[in-house]
Design a protein around this nucleic acid. Structure first.
Lengths: 348, 348
DNA sequence: TTGAAAGCGCTAACAG
DNA sequence: CTGTTAGCGCTTTCAA
């Protein structure tokens, strides 16, 4: 507040001088360790008041240098452009703070180089744990952390060198597919094979979801058309182009779709709108992820919401109790009734 | 990599010993200051190689403690649940890194207490600048920073004690309103007064947008119905309830709306869908913010996209050149053709 | 009850 | 060309 020379920050030495005591006393008081060092409550109060008056803020760099633990926890996240990652970040921050940890988060924009650079930077800041969310090469990051004796954890996409917390993609996709097929049957009279679109065939989650997709078709005994499994990447344009190419190649347009992410769904919806193929009969749809506006699109679109709270509970379970194997923890996703989807959004 | 005792981290002393040289030489080499200290390139290379081998990571706490500048820049942000803030955070991170700054971001969930706590924590970490995004009480934060001699800046919502970078809400709202009115005329035969919904009447942005809304009506000489200015807050439920209450009170339902944010738009769209008032004739709409799925909703909905890149250019202009007055910088928002809205999304 | 002092890992004079 | 040294602000014995 009443700081006259804003250039230099108040230190515990300044406070000690003002209070006519020593820096160690100030430190003890300000850290609440003063019951142990039976400091007179009078002195304690004086110090506290002075600190307040001077707008004192501890220098964490100095404090952490001296301490053994940094209480800093890092997370890298690919993007901030959808509800899923947004919710992960927000929940992570909250849970970290609840534990007295200081979260630092950085967005690596799906760039492998940035990922490792970010990991190194976080190590420089002495993070005690690093959570890699949706990382392209999680094992690389685990190696870097491992070399520095820092724990790492994978979220959303699994790795083999650290505990991984992911959605139960297989079961979720199987159930989502089942629901779309049921809607297809209700709407079209008979269940017809669906199209799968979005994601990279090489990534674990997409592979598992394709497996669930196949299983659900097998469950009711209808065949999957291999040309209708379009793991074309995540970007909206990729999805749009794939569908366009498919429509050009075939005379019929898909009557139902399993869309692998909201980001792919953007491209799918755009194509549906622009192509003009569906003016009277919109396709039966499902999306492995959730978005409030997408929920309002078209007649009805089944959506799975990944259980972010559940996943982060598992993450902090590991952190709190320090397990370090390369276990794979799969969290069942949640199916939302589209009418209640918005109401139940924990982020609103 | 080949670190046998993962407990203790490698320091420059370890490296110095391994290289048979001193810590200061190591420090100089690792910081690239070795042209000044004409160190033999042979030694430099040896040190670099050793650092690599040992997986050495500088201890920032120690480095920053010694340095005068921390190169850390903080941002507080209310939520991660919409494209606007997501884009702000992502752009901010990128631009900070381009300048060699380390961004730390924290989400305060529109909680005034958390805001000041976060600001204090950031000061402890020696941030050089703090950007308050959409803060409920930006001046409070400026005071706290000012007392510590740290620069602060307001983004999205203005304050009076630090430079503020915001959208040109008045002009943007006036143009958005004009466009909705034009659509209204085209669709309904005549321009009819619109309803304004969302936001807090007390916040600067909402007040300015309401002013622009009125101005656009005045421009074409049609009166605004005061009961149709519903600054009911941002939450979707608030918007939904307000509309519901209005519909109960009046026999007619609004034919056109200006929605103040995507978050309010969620509630509006839900009400439109649930209330059943608009089965054959959807209302003419506009939203002061942008979302890719919202862009695909209904017939057409005019959207303004706030110019995040432009706003952050202005933010870093201040930071790079160190202006500190309480200037107000207003950035014109951008009108997106709904057909190209997705293609132009810088975040995709 | 309290203060003095050492030292966390690093940087930047300064002295060779 | 290179090493020695003095701190940065804080925590934590240890001694008084």
């Amino acid at each position: 507040m009443n700081q006259d020379r804003p250039t230099k920050k108040t230190t515990i030495y300044d406070l000690a001088e003002l209070a006519g005591t020593s820096a160690s006393a100030v430190s003890a008081v300000l850290n609440g360790n003063w019951k142990k060092r039976r400091i007179s409550s009078q002195l304690a109060e004086k110090i506290t008041r002075l600190a307040e008056e001077q707008g004192y803020a501890i220098n964490m760099q100095a404090s952490l240098l001296r301490r053994e633990k940094s209480k800093i926890i890092g997370m890298i996240v690919p993007k901030y452009d959808n509800r899923y990652f947004g919710s992960i970040v927000e929940t992570f921050e909250t849970m970290a703070r609840e534990r007295g940890l200081f979260p630092i988060i950085t967005c690596t924009r799906r760039d492998p180089e940035l990922e490792v650079e970010a990991a190194r930077t976080m190590l420089s800041y002495q993070v005690e744990w690093l959570v890699s969310t949706g990382a392209t090469d999680p094992d690389r990051i685990s190696d870097i952390c491992g070399a520095a004796g820092v724990g790492s954890l994978n979220l959303d996409l699994p790795g083999t060198k650290a505990p991984s917390v992911i959605s139960d993609n297989f079961t979720g996709a199987r159930e989502l597919t089942r629901r779309i097929l049921v809607n297809s049957e209700r709407k079209l009279g008979a269940a017809r094979p669906l199209l799968f679109i979005g994601g990279r065939g090489s990534d674990h989650n997409t592979a598992e979801r394709v497996r669930g997709f196949r299983a659900a078709h097998a469950d009711i005994g209808i065949p999957v058309d291999e040309r209708h499994i379009l793991t074309c990447g995540y970007a909206p344009e990729k999805a749009e182009m794939s569908l366009q190419a498919l429509a050009m190649a075939e005379r019929e347009v898909p009557s139902g779709m399993f869309v692998n992410s909201t980001i792919s769904l953007e491209g799918v919806m755009r194509w549906i709108k622009r192509s003009g193929h569906y003016v009277d009969h919109s396709p039966v749809m499902g999306c492995f992820d959730w978005d409030p506006f997408a929920a309002l699109l078209g007649d009805e679109i089944e959506m799975v919401r990944q259980d972010v709270q559940g996943m982060l509970n598992a993450v902090f379970e590991v952190i709190d109790h320090g397990a370090r194997g390369a276990s794979l923890i799969e969290i069942p996703p949640v199916f939302v009734d589209s009418n209640y989807a918005l109401i139940n959004d924990p982020m609103v």
